[in-house]
Computed example of a mutant assay.
Amino acid sequence: MTMMSAPLMAQCSLCTKTAQQLGEGPAKGLNNGILMLALTPLAIIGFLAFRWWRSNREA
């Protein structure tokens, strides 16, 4: 859980350079957008892993 206390930076080197040119506000929006796009597949994988774990635990 130590990762949650630090601010998350989800930008590749190209996105970082673009964000630096945009300024503070749009850069935060870009970073939040990248994190939101990453959250969907991780949530799906987590849900499937939970279902698999629950079905194997009962068997």
Rank of each mutant, 00 (worst) to 15 (best):
residue 1 M to S: 15
residue 1 M to A: 15
residue 1 M to H: 12
residue 2 T to P: 08
residue 2 T to C: 08
residue 2 T to N: 08
residue 2 T to G: 11
residue 4 M to V: 15
residue 5 S to R: 12
residue 5 S to A: 13
residue 6 A to H: 12
residue 6 A to E: 15
residue 7 P to G: 07
residue 7 P to F: 01
residue 7 P to E: 10
residue 7 P to R: 06
residue 8 L to V: 12
residue 8 L to Y: 07
residue 8 L to P: 02
residue 9 M to G: 02
residue 9 M to H: 08
residue 9 M to I: 12
residue 10 A to N: 11
residue 10 A to P: 05
residue 10 A to Q: 08
residue 11 Q to I: 09
residue 12 C to M: 09
residue 12 C to F: 14
residue 13 S to E: 14
residue 13 S to V: 14
residue 13 S to C: 07
residue 15 C to H: 06
residue 15 C to N: 00
residue 16 T to Q: 13
residue 17 K to N: 13
residue 17 K to Q: 14
residue 18 T to I: 12
residue 18 T to R: 10
residue 19 A to Q: 07
residue 19 A to H: 03
residue 20 Q to V: 01
residue 21 Q to P: 02
residue 21 Q to G: 03
residue 21 Q to F: 08
residue 22 L to R: 11
residue 23 G to R: 03
residue 23 G to H: 02
residue 24 E to Y: 13
residue 24 E to Q: 12
residue 24 E to S: 07
residue 25 G to L: 08
residue 25 G to M: 05
residue 26 P to D: 01
residue 26 P to L: 13
residue 27 A to P: 01
residue 27 A to D: 01
residue 27 A to M: 04
residue 28 K to D: 00
residue 28 K to S: 06
residue 28 K to I: 00
residue 29 G to C: 00
residue 30 L to E: 00
residue 30 L to Q: 03
residue 31 N to L: 02
residue 31 N to K: 00
residue 32 N to P: 00
residue 32 N to F: 06
residue 33 G to A: 06
residue 35 L to T: 08
residue 36 M to A: 14
residue 36 M to V: 10
residue 36 M to W: 11
residue 36 M to L: 15
residue 38 A to D: 09
residue 38 A to L: 14
residue 39 L to M: 12
residue 39 L to Q: 06
residue 39 L to C: 09
residue 40 T to Y: 09
residue 40 T to H: 06
residue 40 T to D: 01
residue 40 T to I: 15
residue 41 P to E: 04
residue 41 P to I: 00
residue 42 L to N: 03
residue 42 L to E: 01
residue 42 L to W: 00
residue 42 L to Q: 00
residue 42 L to I: 05
residue 43 A to Y: 06
residue 44 I to Q: 00
residue 44 I to T: 06
residue 44 I to P: 04
residue 45 I to D: 00
residue 45 I to N: 04
residue 45 I to W: 02
residue 46 G to M: 06
residue 46 G to R: 06
residue 46 G to F: 03
residue 47 F to M: 08
residue 47 F to D: 03
residue 47 F to A: 09
residue 47 F to L: 06
residue 47 F to E: 01
residue 48 L to F: 13
residue 48 L to H: 10
residue 48 L to S: 07
residue 48 L to Q: 11
residue 48 L to G: 09
residue 49 A to Q: 08
residue 49 A to Y: 09
residue 50 F to Y: 15
residue 51 R to Y: 13
residue 51 R to K: 15
residue 51 R to W: 13
residue 51 R to L: 13
residue 51 R to H: 14
residue 51 R to A: 12
residue 52 W to R: 12
residue 53 W to D: 05
residue 54 R to H: 07
residue 54 R to V: 05
residue 54 R to W: 12
residue 54 R to P: 03
residue 54 R to F: 12
residue 55 S to Y: 07
residue 56 N to H: 10
residue 56 N to W: 05
residue 57 R to A: 05
residue 57 R to L: 06
residue 57 R to I: 05
residue 59 A to Q: 11
residue 59 A to D: 11
